[in-house]
Simulated scan of single mutants.
Amino acid sequence: MRAVCEFEVIDESPDWIVVSKPAPLAVHPANGKVEPTLLGGLEALLAAELAGGGRLSILTRLDRETSGLVLIAKNPEAARELGGQLARRSAHKEYEAIVHGWPEWDERQVDEPILRAGEAGESAIWLRQRVHPDGRACCTGFKVAARFSREGAAFARMICFPLTGRTHQIRAHLEHVGHPLVGDKIYGTAGEAYLAQFEDRLTPEIEARLMLPRQALHARALGVEWRGAELRWECPLPPDLARFFEGTDLAQKHG
């Protein structure tokens, strides 16, 4: 996938803006790469406000291969208020995922600490997280929305509720319960696809095993309180993930 700086403005006020970020657009510049980023696009879009003293703070960061809602504060006051709600876990966040296998449960909560895999042993991937008793507290709720099959393999559409804000927590917890994301290049495998992509040697065979060019994770809903009002934004499943789900035989669906 090639990143382009295209995103949709969902809602906006003088203090904040909510956008829908596509995959594989990076949120911030990383590793010295010169590439389109959400931050760069926002700085261009809001140039007049920034010239007048505004300052952007991206509050709900997403991995480059995760799509969906991102909340950005336009000034320090909004950053403190909205960031405080996220830190206190009073903000509401929902993600939608497509995972391998059919869970034997319909709903469950995973309350397992995670840390960088390299802190617990050798790891070729610095970003990788893993469940470990010495890690930081981490809690994610899961609900199965549908079970379906595709080309003889079992998959599930999952709603995820991250109650903490740890790096990769949804992905690490899904791997821990045996249902990693479809298309995930780090979790659910030894990370061969991630290393191959990083070293520019991603082959058609590796891509075929992934089944999707990016991980099947989407930030679909976000809710906060602002100036005494409850605000909620939603963003439907993007076409690439919808096609993967809709082109299948449905086994079971929940409300």
Rank of each mutant, 00 (worst) to 15 (best):
V131M: 05
F148E: 05
D63N: 03
I125A: 07
R61W: 01
L45S: 03
C160W: 02
R147V: 04
L50Q: 10
W16N: 00
E246Q: 15
E96V: 14
A196D: 15
E175G: 01
L222G: 09
F198C: 09
D111Y: 01
L237V: 14
E151S: 14
K253T: 14
I58L: 15
T164S: 07
E199A: 12
R108S: 06
G165V: 00
E8V: 12
I72H: 12
E175T: 03
G118Y: 12
G52M: 02
H28G: 05
A120P: 02
E35Q: 12
R150V: 06
M211T: 07
A190R: 14
A87G: 09
R108W: 08
A3L: 03
P204A: 08
P36H: 03
A87C: 01
I17F: 06
E43H: 08
H92A: 13
P133N: 12
E49R: 13
I206A: 03
H173F: 03
E207S: 13
R243S: 11
Y95A: 11
Q215D: 05
P113V: 03
P103Y: 07
I114W: 01
A221N: 06
R2L: 15
P22I: 02
A172T: 15
W226C: 08
A251M: 09
R130G: 09
H254V: 04
D240I: 11
E225Y: 10
C5K: 01
E112F: 00
Q129Y: 01
K33D: 15
V182A: 04
E96Y: 06
R209Q: 15
K74V: 13
L71P: 12
R136V: 07
H28Y: 14
I206H: 05
F142V: 05
V34S: 13
A30P: 00
A242G: 05
E43F: 05
P204T: 06
E107A: 02
P133D: 10
I72F: 11
G53R: 02
L62C: 10
A120N: 08
L217K: 07
G152I: 11
G228A: 02
Q169T: 01
I98W: 05
P239C: 00
P14H: 06
G118R: 11
F244R: 07
T189R: 08
L237A: 10
G53A: 03
L56S: 04
A124M: 05
L174D: 02
A190D: 15
A3C: 03
Q197V: 02
R130C: 15
A137L: 06
L59D: 13
R2H: 15
K185F: 14
H100E: 11
A153Y: 15
H179A: 07
R171P: 04
A196C: 11
E49T: 09
L210T: 08
R64C: 05
E207M: 12
E65G: 02
A117G: 11
D63Y: 04
T189L: 06
T248F: 01
F245P: 01
K74A: 11
T167S: 12
A146W: 13
R243D: 14
A124I: 00
C139F: 00
Q109C: 07
E205I: 00
G32E: 14
W105Q: 02
A242N: 03
V99T: 09
H92V: 13
G255P: 08
R55N: 09
L82Y: 12
A190K: 13
E77P: 01
R227Y: 08
A154M: 07
L163H: 13
A3P: 12
E12H: 10
L241A: 00
Q197D: 10
M211F: 11
A91M: 10
W102V: 04
A79Q: 11
F198N: 07
